[in-house]
Simulated scan of single mutants.
Amino acid sequence: MYFQGFVIPVKTGNKPAYLDGTKRVSAIFAEYGALRTVACWGEDVMDGKVTDFKKAVQAKDDETVVLSWVWWRDKAACEAGTAKMMAEDRMKPDGALPFDGKRMIYGGFEVSLDTKGGGRLGYVDSVVASVPNGNRQGFVDHATKAAGLFQEKGALRIVEGWGADVPDGKVTDFKRAVQAKDGETVIFGWIEWPDKPTRDSGMGALMQDPRMREMPPAWNGPLAIFGGFTPIFDTANA
Rank of each mutant, 00 (worst) to 15 (best):
S68G: 09
G119E: 05
S68L: 12
R24T: 10
G21C: 01
E79G: 01
A34E: 08
E88S: 12
D52A: 08
G48L: 14
L113T: 00
D100F: 08
C40Y: 03
L67R: 09
C78N: 13
L19G: 00
M86Q: 04
D94K: 11
K102L: 07
C40I: 02
M86L: 13
G33T: 08
V57F: 07
A39K: 04
T115M: 12
V66K: 12
L97D: 05
A39Q: 10
R36A: 05
V25P: 00
R73H: 12
A34Q: 11
D114H: 06
V50P: 01
K60N: 11
A39Y: 12
D114A: 02
D44C: 07
S112I: 10
D114M: 05
L113Y: 03
G101Q: 10
D62Q: 08
V45D: 10
G21A: 05
A27S: 10
E43T: 12
K55Y: 07
K116G: 00
F99D: 04
T51M: 09
D44S: 11
G107S: 06
G122C: 05
G122Y: 04
T51A: 11
A30I: 15
K23E: 12
G42W: 03
A30N: 13
D89C: 02
W41Y: 14
G48D: 09
A76M: 10
S112P: 05
A59R: 04
E63L: 04
T37R: 09
W69T: 08
G118S: 02
G42D: 04
R24E: 03
W71T: 00
S26A: 15
T64A: 09
D94I: 08
C78R: 14
K92H: 05
E79Q: 10
D114E: 09
S68T: 10
E43F: 06
R90C: 01
I105K: 02
K92R: 06
V25S: 01
E63G: 12
V25N: 03
G108C: 07
K84C: 02
E88P: 01
K84F: 03
G48Q: 08
P98I: 00
D74C: 07
V111R: 01
